[in-house]
Design a protein around this nucleic acid. Structure first.
Length: 431
RNA sequence: UCCACAGUAGCUCAAUGGUAGAGCAUCCGGCUGUUAACCGGAGGGUUGCAGGUUCGAGUCCUGCCUGUGGAGCCA
């Protein structure tokens, strides 16, 4: 079998091989023809010249359309004139299917048009690069936790109630048991698992029915959530910075070609090394005031606020101890100031905003019960969660990292929707 | 939900209230090393929908639809 992948052609110079793929583009000049073939591992230019090939082959070449599927047999040659330095002298073309009127031409297109054709857009080289970096980030995430004794514990996607009681959830009928909701976080379940296994993480899709219309939001996105028994907020921040450093380092080390294809300036990514600066919410507010931004203590940091704060640093910054009032009920209060929650957000540089949100969890039964009431949450669906504080409660902490926001930042994209194969936004359910 | 912007050829965009155009794509022709190739030609339109103002509306006004960006919310 002489079949090889385009990515391996360099090791086959002088060989007669067969590649199988799709027509990426073609060019012609009089009696010479250039066919660019893509197979997922790369693109190779293959050449046909008059005098060296039969007329039937020229005929077939001229009929080929963009994205037609085919097999090409030929001899591999090194040639400086070819993109990539390697090309194929065509001896035989086997057409598998002639594509009709491929809509995505090698020219500019608008985002709406490309999103409607997302199933075809994935064939473009930049989308390849993004999806490969997404894969690398996922691989690095698993590698990081698996190498540190964490156990992957999947959380359910159907849940009986809101985890945090703040955001709007997708609702569905669940047989005779009433309403069920698509999960907005696996955290509460991760906490239960941490009490069983010590160090755990869950990694799966999460759903938010908020009608968010920004470059940072999807209605369906992936989140990885570690949870560690006996960790406090400082341990949590130690874990978060090591985690982010590992992810960025893995992409830099293993996906340099993809970053280059995206024209990403990697110098800013090289900076992502421990320790990350740690500032309190109060210090963040001071930074905003120094930059003449009107900001009232007690409000949450908005998109531009986050950008201004993160611009003060050359790497991700961790903002901790937010006003408890605006944070979720399960976050533990700071013993030094009960108005503050032991929470931490990690803000990515370059205006990419919050990629991690985490906290030390409330571990006292009575306090947690009071928080549920203060937040107007029903007790019954949380009984099992309260059990975790009845039976051997311990300090513990964790965080959630948004996969797509992280990929958008590392790739330097202007919008989160390109970081997931088939994005779900408020106005997009297809394809 | 609120605010702003946009919708013209398959795509990306032009067009002072006065005959709807270009580039790319498609089709035809040319070119023996092209690099989003290039050169010549052809076809391609209910200007998002419904009203209104006007001698005349792609252009101005009203409503609606669709999309984009932002706010809020958050990963």
């Amino acid at each position: 079998m002489d079949r090889v992948y385009i990515g391996e052609l360099r090791a086959h110079i002088g060989d007669r091989v067969t590649i199988r793929g799709w027509v990426h583009n073609k060019r012609s000049s009089g009696k010479i023809r250039f066919l660019l073939v893509r197979d997922g591992t790369g693109v190779v230019q293959s050449v046909l010249s008059k005098g060296n090939a039969p007329d039937e082959l020229f005929q077939l070449f001229d009929e080929l359309t963009q994205e037609s599927s085919l097999a090409v047999r030929g001899t591999v040659r090194a040639d400086e004139r070819a993109p990539g330095g390697v090309e194929l002298t065509i001896e035989e073309i086997q057409l598998l299917q002639l594509a009709q009127d491929y809509p995505i031409t090698p020219k500019e297109h608008g985002i709406e048009f490309l999103m409607d054709l997302r199933h075809l857009w994935l064939r473009s080289s930049k989308q390849h690069a993004i999806l490969r970096i997404r894969h690398e980030v996922i691989r690095a995430i698993r590698e990081f936790f698996d190498g540190r004794g964490f156990t992957l514990v999947d959380a359910p996607i159907f849940t009986p109630a809101a985890c945090e009681g703040t955001t709007t959830l997708f609702e569905t009928e669940y047989f005779d048991l009433g309403k069920a909701y698509l999960t907005q976080s696996g955290q509460l379940y991760a906490e239960a698992a941490a009490m069983a296994l010590g160090k755990v993480y869950c990694f799966g899709p999460t759903f938010r029915a908020e009608k968010s219309k920004t470059r940072r939001h999807l209605t369906e996105f992936w989140m990885v959530e570690p949870e560690v028994a006996f960790n406090d907020l400082n341990d949590d921040m130690d874990l978060a910075e090591a985690f982010v450093e590992h992810i960025v380092g893995s992409v830099l080390g293993n996906r340099a070609a993809e970053l280059k294809a995206l024209e990403r300036d990697t110098r800013l990514l090289e900076n992502v090394k421990r320790p990350f600066p740690r500032i309190s919410y109060g210090e963040a507010v001071e930074i905003l005031h120094k930059n003449a931004l009107p900001f009232e203590w007690g409000n949450d940091l908005g998109g531009t606020d986050e950008t201004v704060v993160s611009q003060q640093f050359d790497r991700p910054v961790m903002v901790h101890r937010y006003p408890a009032k605006m944070k979720a009920f399960y976050m533990k209060r700071d013993p030094a100031n009960p108005d503050l929650a032991l929470a931490v957000d990690v803000l990515a540089p370059e205006g990419y905003g919050e990629i991690i949100g985490g906290s030390q969890r409330e571990d006292d039964y009575e306090t947690l019960l009071r928080r549920l009431e203060e937040n107007g949450l029903p007790r019954e669906p949380f009984e099992w969660y309260l059990d975790l504080r009845r039976y051997g409660s311990v300090p513990h902490a964790g965080f959630g990292l948004g996969l797509e926001r992280t990929v958008a930042w590392i790739c330097g994209l202007d919008h989160i929707r390109q970081t997931i194969p088939f994005p779900r936004t408020i106005y997009r359910l297809r394809p």
